[in-house]
């Protein structure tokens, strides 16, 4: 089933949903959002693309294997948890610092943000892995 409307829409919607997912991820610490919902939103962007075109195209769009995304997410989450250990504090103690972009504007960065990025990647990877595999079977066997 191919639909020109869906395909055209998907091409424009994909970047918007991805931007939204990253926005949700980054603002999550202060406003509604976070890694979990961000990862799900990103996954839905890929699913939308896979529905409009096919799984192979969506896979191509992801560039790397979705299983690698899962592994990457776990590594980032675990790494962010280990930062405090390296500094001699208990495992997973939140560690914060400030990045001075200009003299007046400072960006607060902390390990919980990287932890959330890890969550985002794991959720994206798992969801996409399962749904791609499900749809893949359909096309292969059918």
């Amino acid at each position: 089933m191919t639909s020109l409307i869906l395909r055209t829409a998907a091409r424009y919607l994909f970047p918007i949903i991805m931007l939204f997912s990253i926005y949700a991820l980054l603002r999550g610490h202060n406003e509604p959002g976070g890694g979990f919902v961000g990862g799900l939103a990103a996954a839905s962007a890929y699913i939308l693309y896979a529905l409009a075109y096919d799984v192979a195209a969506a896979r191509h769009l992801l560039r790397i294997d979705s299983r690698t995304v899962i592994a990457l997410g776990l590594v980032i989450a675990l790494g962010s948890a280990l930062v405090s250990v390296a500094l001699g504090q208990p495992f997973m103690t939140g560690t914060w610092g400030e990045l001075a972009i200009t003299s007046t504007y400072k960006l607060k960065l902390g390990t919980p943000l990287f932890f959330d990025i890890g969550v985002y990647l794991v959720v994206l990877g798992v969801t996409v892995t399962i749904l791609f595999a499900l749809s893949d079977q359909e096309t292969e066997a059918g």
């Binding site: 610490h29 202060n30 406003e31 976070g34 989450a77 939140g94 914060w96 902390g110």
Partner: peptide
Amino acid sequence: HGRNIVNVILVDYRGLDTL
């Protein structure tokens, strides 16, 4: 360091659970 309590709980207070 966050105003969204739900998210702070997920990634900080109960971060180990999330991990």
